[in-house]
């Protein structure tokens, strides 16, 4: 299954170094992260040095080199969320999950992440779990959210 997507990406972008980011996005959408063997294959087929693939994969905030948990809890730390108390929510979630941003809980259930702004400023403060945006939160509501997943 995993190999199929790699083949498809390679087929669409072979020899086109400018498509590196699109290829990485496609791979990550499938795997949930960027596995090292896939990056090695990609580097070869696109004709890009592995060092550059690594450079790009670590430059952009969206890319992850580690597998993610079943759910991603993403705390918005944008300005509007900040002035309405997102830092308290972030600390509460961090404490509850016991992980740093980018890391996954030991049971593989949640990955904690932060984002600079999701553009849902009117309903600040905001936490996005997987694809669902939850607004007007406080620390208790944010912790209660976790139970839903």
């Amino acid at each position: 299954m995993g190999e199929a997507i790699l083949e498809e990406v390679v087929r669409s972008y072979r020899g086109r170094p400018e498509k590196l980011i699109a290829a990485l996005l496609a791979l990550q959408r499938h795997y949930g992260y960027l596995p090292e063997p896939a990056l090695r294959t990609l580097a070869q087929e696109l004709g890009v040095p592995l060092s550059k693939v690594y450079g790009v994969a670590t430059f952009y905030a969206q890319f992850r080199l580690k597998p993610r948990g079943r759910h991603t809890v993403c705390v918005c730390l944008g300005t509007a969320c900040h002035v309405r108390g997102s830092e308290q929510i972030f600390h509460a979630l961090k404490r509850e999950l016991g992980v740093e941003p980018g890391d996954t809980t030991a049971d593989g259930r949640f990955t904690l992440e932060v984002v600079s702004c999701v553009g849902a400023c009117s309903m600040a403060p905001v936490v996005v779990v997987d694809e669902e945006t939850h607004g007007r939160l406080d620390p208790e509501k944010a912790l209660a959210l976790l139970k839903k997943y």
Binding site: L20, I21, Y60, A61
Partner: peptide, 25 residues
């Protein structure tokens, strides 16, 4: 459509173009 990958600096025009070309922004 060219999807970004999360880098504020890509709002800068030359960084944005570097990103479309498949490079770090």
């Amino acid at each position: 459509i060219n999807e970004g990958a999360g880098a504020f600096v890509c709002g800068e025009s030359t960084a944005l173009m570097a990103s479309i070309e498949g490079n770090r922004g």
